[in-house]
């Protein structure tokens, strides 16, 4: 790891002036579980690390107030998983509880989960000059892409977005509170993400001198919601594919359906087609299956990840059934 100067401001206000207007020289440290990995691989070589761990109060709290629950960006994943304030959002708490192992959940934060960089093994290898490191090509396109994107249209770089919290949060209609030199802005969570294609872009739309400080979830009459993911192992593992589903039950049918896919595209992916397949219908094995088919319809897999298209169908179906309260048919 390249050495650096270290700052630990006590407030976001004190953190802001320490940030640069450009990416690269300065990095924010939240839980450290992503940043330290990148530094050890020399993929990130900041001269300055600004730790957010000294910021307390609301930054580290989950607060239910009025029609919303606000989660500070510094809240640990373990605390989200076990939060009573978030009990109405099993899609979120369940997904948080599935992330890696307890140690990571004790270290990693909400902000870190949303702002972490991708896990592409070409990006993470210092010696591979990929697009995101200023190179000329994406090595995954005709390389080893078992874990890469299957919704690849228009994307020169075919990473998958690594956040497992983003899909449920988007499905739940969450917004991000972002603080920067010009003040505060509120961003619908799906707008927080972008597909990066060059060195100067991140997987999110924050400016280099902005800080994500909180995420707010509308809590008035929470929808039915669930997240389902396929992991190869029960041990610390990235999901192969994930789906979060939220809808409001109206008599027997689903309304305001939201289906968001994770780990299949460079961004968390809102599936309008899957939502449409369920909208106004009772959630049954048949409609959930149809939603899965609809979600997978636009997929354009790479040489080595066609199997993930089948997984998209499965996770959407299962997440929809879980949200509807059906008994998981896949468990003995």
């Amino acid at each position: 790891m390249k050495n650096f100067t270290y700052h630990r401001p006590a407030t976001v206000a004190a953190a802001l002036p320490l940030l640069d207007a450009e990416w690269g020289k300065t990095e924010l440290l939240a839980g450290g579980t992503d940043l330290l990995d990148r530094q050890k691989e020399y993929v990130s070589q900041p001269d300055k690390v600004v730790s957010l761990t000294g910021i307390g109060g609301a930054f580290k709290q989950i607060a239910a107030a009025g029609d919303a629950v606000t989660i500070g960006a510094g809240v640990k994943l373990a605390d989200i998983a076990e939060s009573k304030e978030l009990a109405a959002f099993p899609a979120l708490t369940g997904a948080a509880g599935e992330i890696a192992g307890p140690q990571i959940r004790n270290m990693g934060t909400l902000g870190g989960s949303l702002c972490q960089r991708n896990r592409c093994w070409y990006f993470r290898d210092e010696h591979v000059p990929c697009l995101l490191k200023g190179g000329k090509k994406c090595f995954a396109l005709d390389g080893e892409n078992e874990y890469h994107a299957v919704f690849t249209q228009g994307h020169p770089c075919v990473i998958v977005h690594p956040s497992t919290l983003a899909p449920p949060l988007i499905a739940l209609g969450a917004t991000a509170e972002v603080v920067g030199p010009k003040g505060t802005r509120t961003v619908p969570l799906e707008k927080l993400f972008q597909a990066p294609a060059k060195e100067t872009q991140r997987e999110h739309t924050l400016a280099p001198n902005e800080v994500l400080v909180a995420v707010k979830i509308p809590a008035k009459e929470p929808p039915r919601n669930a997240s389902y993911e396929v992991k190869q192992r029960e041990t610390s593992e990235w999901p192969l594919v994930q789906a979060a589903v939220a809808f409001r039950p109206f008599v027997k049918v689903a309304r305001d359906v939201r289906v968001v896919l994770g780990h299949v595209a460079p961004t968390p992916l809102v599936s309008e087609a899957a939502a449409k397949a369920l909208e106004g219908k009772e959630v049954t094995d048949a409609t959930a299956t149809a939603a899965g088919e609809a979600a997978a319809a636009g997929a354009k897999p790479l040489s080595g990840n066609g199997y993930k298209v089948a997984l998209v169908k499965t996770v959407v179906k299962r997440a929809a059934l879980l949200a509807a309260g059906a008994r998981p048919y896949w468990e003995g």
Binding site: F4, T5, R8, P9, T11, A13, L18, E177, V179, G183
Partner: peptide
């Protein structure tokens, strides 16, 4: 800044105060 932030629903440490700006000292390298 904090007042503006309060309007946006932010409290305390999250507020983007323009000033005063307490120093966060550099440690290292």
């Amino acid at each position: 800044g904090a007042a503006a932030a309060a309007a946006a629903g932010l409290r305390g440490e999250l507020a983007p105060a323009a000033q005063p700006n307490p120093a966060a000292p550099a440690h290292g390298p």
